[in-house]
Design a protein around this nucleic acid. Structure first.
Lengths: 279, 279
DNA sequence: TAGTGGTCTAGACCACCGG
DNA sequence: CGGTGGTCTAGACCACTAG
């Protein structure tokens, strides 16, 4: 192989582009109607890619020619492409046409927050058994997690989650009362709490997911049917509204072999962090 | 609490913006010099936020006024803000000023790919013991993973990784020969393979990380010093160059309690997928 | 050197939030 | 209703890739 000239030549790819609400483009429940131009465009191009309509050299047409074809400005094309890029569908590099990578698999924001949505997107039948749900004063830790003053009330929910008839995950969720009030109006084993919140006008805007491994405690073992001390995959979810106010904090423990998490990163934008485990 | 009017009012936040190479902004090794305008701007604004220079109402100035202050166009400001947004530093919502969320902690692309970089960014002393490294024909599976024809050669490396003196992770990496050739020129226990590739001009552009839980096999148990069958946190890393050509495929198994992974998502752009576990 | 994607500008209009 | 962020346009120049 030929010798490369120098190091430090990398990072020149310094991207940019725009983004976009994957909302209308991905497999979320929101439909394509109501989406703005670049979102429809992205959906369109995604289909075109999957149908192989861009020829078989594995390259996309230039932004200029796409703009012409679709009758929009280059900026709008770039917005759409940024969407596909973020999901790992296409590359981007200065100097050459974009390369088609394949079909992206990133899930929509709501599928990540809602076990029910997620299960359905997989073609599985989700269900839930509420172990308990109660209102009580927040501990100091909970107060901090939800940005409440300690002593404020929270709603605490413990639910066992199933795919088909098989228990898969144990969910320990804490809501600020404000949010929890909505939950309390629901039937005991109602499926999608997140969906209900959604429907009642609660707006989820950002979330953070931390993944690690934890030993099953006595409760986990009993409800999930595993040995005490066995390793479980833990996902801690935190969600906030558009103003940054916490809406929920949840610690979910999955049986091994039931889920995996995949993150896509590019040199230009990365949303993943690897840390030392807590404690 | 007042009743919210209607559902389906959510998703209006349909963001957009631009992105940017976190490269110059985050804690990557590339310096700020050489960065373009919006990158410097982002770095600047990050510092301003951390120093509390935007007042204590927790809000950012309007894009317009930021553009004026910094003497750039609104588009450039939006590019910079998109960067901060992607890292969870600020929110964005139509109609109101952006809200400051806090200090983001997302790691740079290279820290995710390189155990050595990662460890150092934590202030820990990384080391490595190479168990074996060899060149052999690719299996069918490997061929597919690296997009090679089966029978093509690959370089296979098995390394035990330490933080301080403590074994933390066992790394099974496969490179296409083209890439592996660089590795072979290195000293047996040289620290950063990724760094070496980097220095020799190999350009990493995209990566995908899949995280799940796996039972320790006999090799894992022996080298990591855990019980056979114990749960380990598995991270499968795949990296490609800007053209989409695979550069490496690695399966890393971490002892429990050593790492956690955090992903930030927003309703407008999400890079995380939750799946059923393989098999 | 020609073509392509990345950066930047200037201006426009709209949807939404809050008073 | 005014201010703000989201979308879109049109045009310019630059950095880079590949022939």
């Amino acid at each position: 192989m030929e010798k490369r000239a120098s190091a430090r030549q990398r990072d020149t790819t310094g991207y940019l582009g725009r983004m976009v609400s994957e909302t209308a483009e991905g497999n979320g429940k929101r439909s394509e109607a109501g989406a703005v131009r670049y979102q429809k465009l992205a959906a369109d191009m995604r289909r075109a890619i999957e149908a192989g309509k861009f020829g078989n050299d594995g390259r996309l047409p230039s932004e200029e020619s796409l703009a012409e074809q679709y009758g929009v400005s280059r900026g709008t094309v770039r917005n759409a492409l940024a969407l596909l890029r973020a999901n790992g569908l296409v590359t981007s590099r200065r100097g050459t046409r974009r390369v088609i990578l394949g079909t992206a698999r990133t899930q929509s924001f709501h599928e990540l927050l809602s076990f029910t949505n997620w299960a359905r997107s997989l073609g599985e039948e989700p269900s839930a058994r509420t172990i308990h749900a109660r209102v009580r004063a927040a501990t100091a830790v909970e107060g901090e997690r939800l940005q409440l003053d300690p002593g404020n009330d929270i709603t605490e929910v413990l639910r066992l989650r199933f795919l088909g008839r098989v228990p898969v995950m144990l969910e320990r969720t804490v809501y600020p009362v404000r949010v929890g009030e909505v939950i309390e109006t629901l039937a005991p084993d109602s499926l999608s709490h997140t969906g209900a919140l959604d429907a009642s006008g609660v707006v989820f805007a950002d979330s953070e997911h931390t993944i690690d491994i934890v030993a099953a405690d006595e409760t986990d073992a009993r409800l999930l049917g595993c040995a005490e001390g066995a390793g479980l995959l833990r996902e801690v979810r935190r969600a906030t509204d558009p103003t940054g106010t916490p809406l929920l904090w949840s610690e979910d423990r999955f049986l091994p072999g039931t889920v995996s998490f995949t993150v896509h990163n590019s040199a230009t934008v990365s949303s993943l962090a690897r840390r030392r485990a807590p404690r």
